[in-house]
């Protein structure tokens, strides 16, 4: 809602995290957001709340305390079984109306990006997508939301001074999940779906899980990624062998995906996935900004390219100057089979 005076603002308290639960399992992005919410709540002297919507989700709720939730609002209802974003949006709006959170964070996943813009419109709240950094202005509690814009060429900082709550989405793997503290406990609050929430309904007919979908990439500790310089599908076969040797997954630049050498689910970057791995090995990827935004927070970056002056080679921790078709086979040779 629109804020007319500072006292209006004072009516809004706490930092909310909208949890993402798939097949009964809380997704890592939720833990990451709880980690990001903690310093914000501390700066405001308020609490971190998680909101869990779905069917059969109640059991997982108490465990969110370990990642920093002080309270968990649970809406467990069979009518939320499929992902019916219209219903979830109405429920969330009612909860926001009732409890007046100051900040609402949600994962920038396909589900989050469907749900939360709908909520923001209904709640007349500002929403900033894909934030990479969140801070608080101590003067007035404004959330300082930093996000890449124009394909990652600039970082913009955004405020919503005159509306509450302040809403942001954050991509998976952009924030670090805190180490869980199993001794923490949270208050559990139950809420319902009303008949009017559920009156606008699309029917989810079937759900298909693809275990090989994009998830593997983000979960891999090591990613061996290839670009245009891999020259074709055979080049990617070589990378698959290296990845298998080190227990990693294969990523790709958009140039390689567009050329049809490897499916889109492997694409890293602005229009692909964001990854944050222990080691990212970029093979013949020049490192245009749209690619860098998807992998630059990896712990160790290794680049292999025959051109030592590319942006990727300049930003890498270890830059190997050479032909990928010589260096990669040599690496496979040097790493003993597990």
């Amino acid at each position: 809602m629109q804020i007319r005076s500072e006292s209006d603002k004072a009516g809004f308290r706490n930092v909310w995290v909208v949890a993402e639960v798939l097949s009964g399992k809380v997704q890592p992005v939720t833990h990451e957001l709880l980690g990001a919410a903690r310093p914000l709540a501390d700066a405001r002297g308020s609490e971190v709340w998680a909101v869990v919507l779905g069917s059969g989700v109640a059991d997982g709720a108490p465990a969110l305390a370990a990642y920093g939730a002080d309270a968990v609002v649970v809406v467990d209802d069979a009518r939320l079984a499929g992902f019916t974003d219209e219903v979830e949006a109405r429920v969330l709006c009612r909860l926001i109306d009732e409890h007046r959170p100051e900040i609402v964070l949600c994962g920038a996943t396909t589900r989050g990006r469907a749900l939360i813009p709908r909520v923001a419109v209904m709640a007349r709240a500002g929403l900033t997508a894909d934030c990479t950094e969140l801070g608080i202005d101590p003067e007035n509690g404004d959330l300082l939301q930093t996000r890449p814009a124009f394909g990652g060429n600039i970082l913009a900082t955004i405020r919503c001074s005159s509306h509450r709550p302040q809403m942001s989405t954050v991509r998976p793997r952009v924030m670090k999940a805190p180490a869980p503290d199993p001794s923490r406990r949270a208050r559990i609050l139950r809420a319902d779906v009303t008949p009017s929430d559920a009156s606008l309904l699309k029917r989810v007919v079937e759900v298909f899980h693809d275990a090989n979908a994009a998830f593997n990439l983000a979960d891999a500790p090591i990613i061996v990624s290839g670009g245009r310089g891999m020259k074709g599908p055979d080049g990617f076969e070589l990378l698959k062998r290296l990845a298998a040797r080190v227990g990693g997954a294969v990523g790709a630049s958009r140039a390689a995906v567009d050329a049809g050498w490897i499916p889109y689910t492997h694409q890293v970057g602005q229009t692909g996935q964001t990854v944050q791995t222990q080691v990212y090995v970029a093979c013949a990827i020049s490192g245009q900004i749209q690619h860098l935004v998807g992998m630059q927070s990896s712990d160790l970056i290794v680049a292999i390219d025959k051109n030592p002056d590319t942006p990727m080679m300049k930003m890498a921790d270890i830059a190997v100057v050479g032909d990928v078709f010589e260096v990669v086979p040599a690496l496979i040779d040097e790493i003993p089979k597990l």
Binding site: Q2, A120, R124, A125, G126, L127, T128, L144, P148, A149, G152, N153, I154, L155, A156, T157, I158, R159, C160, S161, S162, H163, I289, V293, Q296, I301, P308, M313, K314, M315, A316, D317, I318, A319, V320, V321, G322, D323, E326, V327, P329, A330, L331, D333, E334
Partner: peptide
């Protein structure tokens, strides 16, 4: 519009130095 862009800046460079390996493929791999 509830949101306002209050600042724009270029993305920060990644800190740290780059170790360059530019010997033979075998030496670099090792």
């Amino acid at each position: 519009s509830p949101t306002r862009v209050v600042r724009t800046q270029p993305p920060p460079p990644r800190s740290g130095t780059t170790t360059v390996l530019d010997g033979s493929a075998r030496d670099s791999a090792r």
